[in-house]
């Protein structure tokens, strides 16, 4: 694997690393809020992935000029579709975060802690 391959696909490596960090935190962390943070990183990694596939070298933002007789050259503009999709995914991410925090607050009220091992110990004692 040479350097050129790594550089040409920099977006891919970036998203893979973020995804794995998020996934690790989501599975391994003991604190529920840290898990939630991991979840957000995990989702954001996928958003990064989508957005970077829309890039065209030298492209502009997808707002097309519209003078008379102007012909749009598609190669000069970014691909709009991934942006649209990710707007939806961002909203979904925010919504999930809200519900996750609401549940975490409920857990905290119930047990007085957010450390998962402490909570599990309490459940076992009951």
């Amino acid at each position: 694997m040479d350097m050129a391959l790594i550089l040409a696909k920099a977006n891919y490596w970036g998203y893979v690393i973020l995804l794995l960090i998020g996934l690790y935190a989501l599975i391994s962390k003991n604190n529920l809020v840290k898990k939630i943070i991991g979840m957000v990183i995990f989702q954001t990694a996928v958003i990064l992935f989508y957005i970077t596939i829309a890039v065209k070298k030298g492209g502009n933002i997808p707002i097309t000029p519209h003078g008379k007789g102007y012909v749009v050259e598609a190669a000069n503009f970014m691909n709009p579709l991934p942006h649209v999709l990710m707007l939806t995914a961002i909203v979904v991410g925010v919504a999930t975060l809200g519900v996750a925090l609401a549940l975490a607050i409920k857990v905290y009220k119930q047990y007085g802690t957010l450390e998962e091992d402490e909570i599990n110990a309490m459940i076992r004692e009951q």
């Binding site: 996934l23 989501l26 529920l32 898990k35 979840m39 995990f42 989702q43 996928v46 992935f49 989508y50 596939i53 579709l81 991934p82 995914a89 999930t96 519900v99 996750a100 549940l103 975490a104 409920k106 857990v107 119930q110 047990y111 909570i119 459940i123």
Partner: peptide, 27 residues
Amino acid sequence: PLSTLNYLFIGTIGATFYLLGVGYIYI
């Protein structure tokens, strides 16, 4: 709340993997 929060974590992993898969199909 705790069991649902765990479900939420797992469910988000599942849904995000699906989204990633759709992204690969798209590219």
